[in-house]
């Protein structure tokens, strides 16, 4: 066995890292110059050869870090740039939100989770620390198997995954049945999940809506599947009040 080389292989040491650095400087230049900056302007500002700049911007557009604007000359930062910040960029919750959720937790003695929906993505922003829910990645990927996912799917059926994965015998994997379920979510303004992701866990989720009625967040209470169906009226009232409170906090009155 030969020892692994101490230096990175030639092709790694060579052009590729340089290209990555150039790509990042292009992103930075677009951020600095503001939307509408053209490829030629980027090339001049950075002192990069035009052909290289055009290749880089088109690569960044292809990967959706940059967006080519409607005039086809100008560029703006793409939505995907946020992903550069990675998982570290946790969203700051408006003041009062964590307190409202914690208050509900102490009163209902059920697991309470808060998710937010942004750009068709589900984010677990306040999971119950005592009863941790399934991983965010799992929830976000298999929207059909969770109550908070069904809330999102009921608004945005286009986010439906191509194949509906089965986790337990209760998971809804037939598109027609799921459509029926989602229609129920829309009419009842609540979604439930009965052991569809994990056999021992059921969930009831309510939408938190902005003033125009858009879906902002979802508040979920979780317990065993057989208890989800017969939750106390008083508990549901408390949850409902918390949903109203969250709506005010997350979408404050513009005045």
């Amino acid at each position: 066995m030969t020892k692994p080389p101490r230096h990175p292989p030639a092709e790694l040491a060579g052009r590729q890292p340089a290209a990555v650095v150039s790509a990042l400087t292009v992103l930075e230049e677009v951020a600095r110059a503001g939307p509408g900056v053209t490829a030629k302007e980027i090339s001049t500002a950075l002192g990069l050869p035009p052909a290289t700049t055009y290749r880089l911007v088109n690569l960044l557009v292809a990967e959706e870090y940059l967006v080519r604007l409607a005039d086809l000359r100008g560029f703006a930062l793409g939505r995907k740039v946020v992903e550069l910040a990675g998982a570290a960029a946790r969203e700051a919750l408006p003041p009062g939100v964590p307190e409202a959720v914690t208050a509900l937790r102490t009163r209902v003695r059920l697991a309470v989770h808060l998710v937010r929906y942004r750009d068709g993505r589900l984010r677990l922003v306040d999971p119950d620390p005592d009863h941790p829910p399934s991983a965010e990645a799992l929830l976000a990927r298999h929207l059909h198997a969770s109550a908070v996912g069904k809330l999102l799917l009921a608004e945005r059926r286009d986010l439906l995954p191509v194949s509906l994965a089965r986790f337990t015998p209760a998971t809804i994997t037939r598109p027609d049945l799921l459509d029926l379920e989602l229609a129920g979510v829309r009419s009842e303004q609540a979604a439930r999940q009965l052991g569809e992701l994990r056999r021992d866990r059921g969930c009831l989720a309510f939408p938190v809506r902005g003033r125009a009625g858009g879906l902002l967040a979802g508040l979920a209470v979780s317990t065993s599947p057989d208890r989800v169906g017969r939750l106390d009226r008083a508990v549901l009232r408390l949850v409902g009040r918390c949903v109203d409170e969250l709506a005010d906090l997350l979408a404050p009155d513009p005045t």
């Binding site: 951020a31 550069l84 910040a85 942004r118 999102l152 608004e155 902002l216």
Partner: peptide, 14 residues
């Protein structure tokens, strides 16, 4: 700044 600004914006309703 651009990233922080984007994250700080209130989520647009879907």
């Amino acid at each position: 700044d651009a990233i922080a600004g984007a994250l700080a914006r209130p989520a647009r309703p879907l």
